[in-house]
C-alpha cells in the first residue's frame, strides 16, 4: 500500500465471458477483496471470485423465531394473564386462535429483517461510493462489466495491480480515490 487515499483499482470488460475469465484469473493470482459489477447476474461469478455465502438466511431465521415468540408471548399475556376473556366456550388461551397472528408476525419480522438485513450487510443506504468516480461506470447498467480490487487487499499494489488488470483483458483501468 503506497497511497492510503486509494480505494482500489477498477477495470472495464465488454462481455460476461470476459469478466468471468478475468475473475478466475484474479482469484488465481491470490486477490481476495474483489467484486464484480455487472448489468445482469452472471452465472457462477460468485464461485469464480470465491465469495462466501451470505449470512442473511441465519439472520432471517432468527428474526422469524423472534416473531413466533413475540406473538405467542403477547397473546398469552393479553388473553390469559392481563385480561382473560372467555369467548364462545374457548379457553382464554386457545392455541388454534393464535396461529394466524403467530404466522403473520413471523412473516413480518422475517420479511423486514431480510430487507433491512440486506441493507445492513451491504452498508446501505449511502450517498456515495468510490466506484462511481470511474469514468465509464455509468455503463454498468447497460453493456459494460466492471471488476474492482480494493486497496485493503493484502496483495494490492498501486502500480502492479492495474498492470495485472490490463494483462487479463481489462480496459479503462483506473485507480480510484476514497
Amino acid at each position: 500500500m503506497t497511497n492510503t487515499n486509494n480505494w482500489g483499482a477498477v477495470a472495464e470488460f465488454d462481455s460476461a465471458a470476459a469478466i468471468y475469465q478475468a475473475c478466475e484469473k484474479v482469484t488465481a493470482e491470490g486477490y481476495t477483496r474483489t467484486d464484480a459489477h455487472t448489468p445482469f447476474p452472471v452465472h457462477g461469478i460468485d464461485k469464480a471470485l470465491r465469495q462466501s455465502e451470505s449470512g442473511l438466511g441465519w439472520l432471517v431465521v432468527c428474526f422469524g423465531l423472534a416473531g413466533i415468540l413475540l406473538a405467542q408471548g403477547m397473546m398469552y399475556w393479553m388473553n390469559a394473564v392481563d385480561y382473560p376473556i372467555w369467548v364462545s366456550g374457548k379457553q382464554p388461551y386457545a392455541w388454534p386462535s393464535t396461529i394466524p397472528i403467530t404466522f403473520e408476525l413471523m412473516i413480518l419480522l422475517s420479511g423486514l429483517s431480510a430487507v433491512f438485513g440486506m441493507f445492513a450487510l451491504n452498508r446501505l443506504p449511502r450517498l456515495h461510493h468510490p466506484i462511481f468516480s470511474h469514468s465509464s461506470i455509468h455503463r454498468v447498467t447497460d453493456d459494460r462489466f466492471f471488476l474492482s480490487i480494493e486497496a485493503t487487499d493484502p496483495k494490492f499494489d498501486s502500480t502492479a495491480t492495474p498492470k495485472f488488470l490490463e494483462s487479463i483483458g481489462g480496459s479503462n483501468v483506473e485507480i480510484l480515490e476514497d
Binding site: S88, G89, P96, S97, I99
Partner: peptide
C-alpha cells in the same frame, strides 16, 4: 388444512 380446521373449531 389448518384453515379448514380453524374455521370449524371456531364456529363449533
Amino acid at each position: 388444512n389448518f384453515s379448514q380446521y380453524m374455521l370449524i373449531w371456531y364456529a363449533n
